[in-house]
Simulated assay, not measured.
Amino acid sequence: MSSPMIRITIQACVLAAASNLMAQLLAEYKSGKPYTIEWVPIIQFIVFTIINCPPNFLWQSYLESSFPSTYLVPSTTALKAAASSDEKELDREEKTHEILEAKLSIRNTIVKLLMDQTIGAAVNTLLFSLVFAGFRGTTLEQATQIAKQDFRGLMTAAWKLWPMVSAVNFTLIKSVETRNLVGSLAGMGWNIYLSLCAGES
């Protein structure tokens, strides 16, 4: 069995390739050009995903371990049993692990959302600009200048999608692995946008 990071990276690579292909077809449809597949940008998006996905997995794992989504509180039935001194029911719930239930931590969820949409988003945006500038054969100085120019526009566009995705992930999805899959699925539309941006640059 492969590690979660490897599984997530493979899934993300497949979705990145599919989204770039769709972006190409969309651009050709809008321009009226005949449909042809350019493999170089598809490979570039796969390479970028291989570079970008593992650090994102580690980042999400860090956020969850540092700011857990839930905390344990006595369950409603356990409180009722305790109030009525029902020792038999309390013993049953303790044996079946029903005596405690998970409750969403609003504070931790807000902290994770803010960190993800500031630090995480900024690093992802800069990495995208630097890597794709590098694909075009620019020097480090030129790549840095391109990243600075692209930063505000990409961040503004990202904040129209990713805060909502992060909010769903942090409140409804329990495992980091599944959150990354949800992010990759939502990222198909985002990657189409990035593909079109990269193609126009």
Rank of each mutant, 00 (worst) to 15 (best):
R107V: 15
E94D: 12
R7F: 12
Q117H: 05
I106M: 15
L130V: 01
M115N: 10
F135K: 12
W59G: 01
A143H: 04
S61N: 08
V123S: 07
I146D: 10
A12L: 04
I43M: 12
R92L: 13
P74Q: 06
F45K: 02
L140F: 11
Q142D: 13
E141S: 13
M188H: 03
V14S: 05
G153W: 06
V111E: 00
E38M: 08
G187I: 06
P68F: 05
C197Y: 00
T118D: 14
V73A: 07
L113M: 07
L63G: 03
L126Y: 14
L25E: 10
M155A: 12
P54G: 00
K95N: 09
L161G: 07
D86S: 12
S105R: 10
D91K: 06
V123K: 10
R152N: 09
Q44H: 13
Q145V: 03
T139M: 02
S175F: 15
L130S: 07
E141V: 13
M164W: 14
I37Y: 06
M1H: 08
R136V: 11
L72D: 08
L90T: 01
N56M: 12
T36V: 11
E64G: 03
L90M: 04
Q60N: 14
L21F: 12
R179K: 15
K95V: 15
N20L: 13
P163T: 00
V131D: 02
E93A: 05
Q117E: 08
